[in-house]
Amino acid sequence: MIEIEGITKRYDATTVVDDVSMVIEPRTIAVIVGTSGSGKTTLLRMINRLVEPTSGIIKLDGADNRSLPGYELRRSIGYAIQGHGLFPHRTVAQNIATVPVLLGWDKDRIKARVDELMTLYQLDPEAFGPRYPHELSGGQQQRVGVARALAAEPNVLLMDEPFGALDPIIRNKAQEDLLAIQKRFGTTIILVTHDMEEAVHMGDKIAVMDAGKLVQYAKPAEILAKPASAFVETLVGASERPFRLLSLGRVRDAVEKGSAEGEAIPGDASQRDALAELLWTGRPALPVKGADGKPLGRVTVDGLVKRAARPA
């Protein structure tokens, strides 16, 4: 659990983060969105004390984050810096091993962990381990940056636009991997992004920042349905809202009785994908199948359209 209480950061006269309070429940993902310069990175960096707040308190699992020396605190918190920040003079494997080495893990354990993470991020340890960062593509560098943040199995992970340089396919994969890791290890994640799609997909809660202030902090569905201000409404993209709302729901939850012609769609696909398929193929209904392949019923255009409407 991360409790941010009345955090303010001022540089001289300018207030960069203005009295922000929020609680991130354990084992959840909070996504911070906001325009460039709204203070997202600064807020993130106050959690691991790369930046010291002007006022306010941040508690991790109940303990003030100033109760440890800064460097010890930072070893326990994974940090994927904006723009990867890999060490150019160290190999990929050495980069990933940074925090485990600082923590004094033994060699075999470090090697096993590095290989595991590289395999997870589809970088062959044999081929990529001994390479230097400048010998990688931008997307590969970014994945190494995320792997480095994950290396010491931190309970808390801070990620600053970690998937910005990835193509849509790899980004999707990286998002799914992160969700899987988060589920498996119960990691608490704070992720900064500019991509509303990513925010809605990844976030248990979304925090919207504007000029240093936290203007709304709520579940994605609520942010979409009840934006707190015109700014939030613009940010979430008014014209995209119905589709984003649908993308939050599973087909399984929109199933109606009856049957339909054609190839069945799996129950855990998103409702948005189902609607897209219906519109694209010009059909009024699609059959739905469960994970075991058994038919569950059907989804209809009418049913999905109702679900895309602003909730009461």
Partner: peptide, 23 residues
Amino acid sequence: LPANVVEAARGAGMTGWQRLTKV
């Protein structure tokens, strides 16, 4: 020095001495 490389070293939990000698 590239600023975000030095910041990454801080973020990883290197002490001042470790940042100097290792980065």
